[in-house]
Design a protein around this nucleic acid. Structure first.
Length: 437
RNA sequence: GCCCCGGUGGUCUAGCGGUCUAUGAUCCCGGCCUGUCGAGCCGGGUGCUCGGGUUCGAAUCCCGACCGGGGCGCCA
């Protein structure tokens, strides 16, 4: 019985003389005249199949004609050989072409030339045949598993809220509109309102990993129109300190797990992410302004911190050993209506951003759970509470204090691995101009 | 949306008014070669994003469109 899914990793010199059938993509054909070497790639490496002309000329001719990147199954015998990288080679007796590749390839896979990002994403399936590209998504998978596991162990339930909505959720960010049986519907920009509603139910510790959509025409290395948001929301908190502790622990754990479970990937990617010391630095907004002013940047009180300021702060914190830090107590005026203001300083708020290497990973805070205050906040922002009745209702019948965050998985993977563009951390990124593939 | 830079064979590049029937690499095709592993050697193949304009002459200069890269704004 032949299994096509057999890994070359399960074969070794000790299998001397044993028959084997191994599948894979033809990465290279080296025809030396009387002998040919096929470099066959599988999911986590390559092995060599060797074809000798003497004894089986038709097989040799067929092997020499193989088109790179074709899918083949090679049947032969295992031959130990110290000259070969794995310590053994497969002496081919037959080669079945299961799927021939066209030539030339629209994107080099094993060539000695590079390709531009646009060409790569146009041919992403070929791009992903390169080990260094796939390594990113193995790391991403470890990150997701680690975050899930860490929160689940603390009683967080994984939930799924609707991605089709009848109205704009938070206001502000632009929504994608779509047709919905004669009505208008919108792609969800955030699970914010729904996860808060859940806080009133007893499903009061939730997490969600899901796409979020933003119709903002941003052209940067850290924006896409569809991204993966890791949301958490927890009730019965004393203060946003409770939120900090859960989030920082989960993120630190994710980095630890990547370091221990994705060593080969980190090596391929030349990445060496440091595990942060906990607790992370909490940098209040007012102190952040001081740092900026000390570095010669002019900022007015209660202004939002712009991209340059964010980078300056990131560099300053980095010098102090805080690649990751919380930027806390933003002015209430630049935060959404659902954020709780500080009782002793209503112009400030219980809100935060989680910054990593000068980029925003997450934002969150303690939510306003008092119905009357919430309605007043809406009005103060010029929003009609009537449009939020489905949400506000949950605050009229018993809503515990709660808080949470929204965390960008793609950005986190980008920064974790020092990738130059967030698109590198997304299989099929969506931006202003790219909708295919 | 704004600012800067750019679009040359399948891919990545050099060229930036005539010397370009366009450079090099990679790739593809053919040939030689029995131990390659960035295989090597020989021969061949494919190209100036599109539309206007300037000029005796445009890959090269100008304008526009489209597309791409980066920065800003906005945010995850």
């Amino acid at each position: 019985m032949v299994s096509l899914s057999r890994s070359f990793r399960d074969v070794g010199p000790s299998d001397h003389g044993k028959p084997a059938t191994l599948g894979g993509w033809v990465e290279d054909v080296r025809n030396l005249g009387g002998i040919a070497f096929l470099i066959i790639r599988q999911r986590d490496g390559t092995f060599q199949a060797t074809v000798k002309k003497k004894g089986n000329e038709p097989l040799f001719e067929a092997a020499a004609k193989l088109v790179r990147e074709s899918v083949v199954a090679v049947h032969g015998t295992v031959q130990p050989n110290a000259q070969v990288r794995n310590g053994w080679e497969l002496l081919a007796a037959s080669i079945a072409v299961l799927s021939a590749a066209d030539a030339p390839l629209p994107l080099p896979v094993a060539d000695k030339v590079g390709a531009e990002m646009d060409t790569r994403f146009d041919n992403r399936f070929l791009d992903l045949r390169k080990p260094e590209r796939r390594a990113i998504f193995r790391v991403r998978s470890v990150v997701l598993a680690a975050l899930r596991e860490r929160l689940a162990s603390q009683g967080f339930l994984e939930v799924h809220t609707p991605k089709l909505a009848g109205a704009g959720a938070e206001g502000g960010a632009t929504l994608f509109e779509t047709a919905y049986f004669g009505r208008k519907a919108y792609l969800s920009q955030s699970p914010q309102l729904y996860k808060q509603i859940l806080m009133s139910t007893g499903l009061d510790r939730v997490m969600e990993f899901a796409p979020a959509f933003r119709a903002e025409p941003s052209d940067t290395v850290r924006h896409v129109t569809e991204f993966t948001s890791f949301d958490g929301e927890m009730a019965w908190i004393e203060s946003q300190e409770d939120v900090f502790r859960v989030l920082e622990d989960a993120v630190a754990h994710a980095i630890e797990r990547v370091r221990s479970e994705a060593k080969p990937e980190l090596e391929i990617l030349h990445a060496d992410p440091a595990v942060p010391q906990l607790p992370l630095r909490r940098l209040p907004y007012d102190e952040a302004l001081e740092i900026l002013r000390n570095r010669g940047k002019h900022v007015r009180d209660r202004d939002d911190i712009d991209t340059e300021g964010e980078k300056v702060l990131g560099a300053a914190m980095g010098q102090e050993g805080h690649a990751l830090y919380f930027l806390t107590e933003y002015p209430a005026a630049i935060k959404p209506f659902y954020i709780m203001a500080k009782p002793d300083d209503p112009e400030a708020s219980f809100s935060f951003d989680l910054e990593y290497k000068g980029d925003e990973m997450a934002s969150g805070g303690q939510r306003e759970h008092r119905y009357d205050v919430l309605v007043a906040n809406l009005k103060a922002k010029g929003i009609d509470p009537a449009g939020f009745e489905f949400y506000l209702k949950a605050f009229r019948y018993g809503m515990p204090p709660h808080g949470g965050w929204g965390f960008g998985i793609d950005r986190f993977v980008q920064k974790l691995l020092d990738l130059p563009n967030v698109r590198e951390a997304i299989l099929f990124p969506r931006d202003r101009t790219r909708l295919v593939p």
